[in-house]
Write a protein that binds this DNA or RNA. Structure first.
Lengths: 217, 217
DNA sequence: AGCCGCTTGTGAACGTGGGCACAAAGTCGC
DNA sequence: GCGACTTTGTGCCCACGTTCACAAGCGGCT
């Protein structure tokens, strides 16, 4: 399978994980790694890992493994984070604050190009070296800094409106932390992270475990 | 399909979303809803929604739809959040702070039973009405308050150790925000949320969109 | 009471993703 | 230079999840 092949969504998510794991490994000075070793470190099956990598072309060496640096570069390029990508963050409440200060974005290929909030009292506040700006400035920043990704960390009520403004400004990918369903044009991608949903899924499994025990007792 | 049937993971995730949507709808005074309407509000296909609900039994009325209150109760029970479930949160840094203050947990069926941090300087700090406690107290709180879910919001380096302590204390489900792969016994469930991975997935799609345009130009 | 229209519940087809197992291909030692 | 060993790349199969399409069932209207 060569470059042009469609890459499954599930594979993309794992590629990002491999990249992260490779980051810690290459700090350890390891120059080459086998699919087995990397798969263990990433918590997946080694066959799955090889199949995932095969979507990027075949550049491993049989009998040896993959050259860590080559692998990192290949995955970075594929994910489009070989150079820093700019994002804007809207909503600097509780969660937005934390996201703005999260070092992992920078180290994993992203640069926060602007912070925005609808609350006038928050404008001008400095967080992690950036000033919170008014929503009116959004479009300009997006254009100027060629931002393609927007992060929404507002309350649910505001999410759709913020989303519309991001899209209007030219953003084509959105990461939504607000517990709301967003409606967007076809060419815009949305990923949602709902913290309570994650907990509820765990809660479901707890429920099942408990039910299983009932039978035993 | 009656109660006892195994429910697919994907369905569970959506049930949580349906529950959230129903929350806003029932505030609107609507007493009954069709699969079509709910599916639209939740952003899914109506056939999928009906199949999802069918795992919980069949309690819709043909020609009418589902009674909102019955639906909410059914889903709540299935997810194990019909009464509040206790969680502990470890790591009150940037992100942990935000999580501790997030109102969505309480309103969606969870109660934070304790905040913990390894940093001695943080102990005693009050966040959202709770005092940050030392890790030494973890086991006692987990037992006393019958906590089954632990949330890890520590740096990656500390995650595995914290995880081990949670498991040792009796926690059987873990929500991990640290960018690290956790190793746990078989009976423990782990869900991970990696913010940078989410962005990288979006970045990948941006990359593809850009590549597509190249061809056109 | 009977018919009509609406909505549920589900069987069956389809597509995607995961896992196994093995052939191909390379390295290392002698 | 050759053989044994290691590891990749992938064809095949299976299971899971999604979608379609429709029969069955219920309420309301006449």
């Amino acid at each position: 399978m060569s470059e042009g092949r469609a890459i499954p969504e599930a594979t993309v998510a794992r590629l990002a994980v491999y990249l992260r794991v490779l980051g810690s490994l290459s700090d350890g000075g390891l120059s080459t790694i086998s699919s087995e070793a990397l798969a263990n470190a990433a918590g997946v099956n080694s066959a799955k890992l090889r199949k995932d990598l095969s979507y990027l072309g075949s550049f491993g060496t049989r009998g040896v493994g993959y050259v860590v640096e080559v692998l990192r570069e290949r995955i970075s390029t594929c994910l489009g984070v070989s150079e820093h990508r700019s994002v804007v963050l809207v909503g600097v409440g509780n969660l937005g604050h934390a996201l703005a200060g999260y070092g992992g974005f920078r180290s994993r290929g992203f640069r926060i190009a602007g912070l925005f909030d609808a609350d006038r009292r928050r404008i001008g506040e400095e967080i992690a070296g950036l000033c919170v700006q008014a929503m009116a400035e959004l479009a300009e920043v997006v254009t100027q800094e060629s931002v393609s990704i927007g992060v929404i960390a507002t309350p649910a009520e505001a999410a759709q409106e913020v989303c519309d403004r991001l899209v209007a400004a030219g953003v084509t990918s959105i990461l939504n932390f607000a517990p709301a369903v967003l409606v967007v044009p076809d060419n815009v991608d949305v990923r949602k992270v709902d913290l309570a949903v994650e907990l509820q899924i765990l809660s479901f499994h707890e429920q099942r475990k408990a039910a299983g025990l009932q039978v035993v007792l």
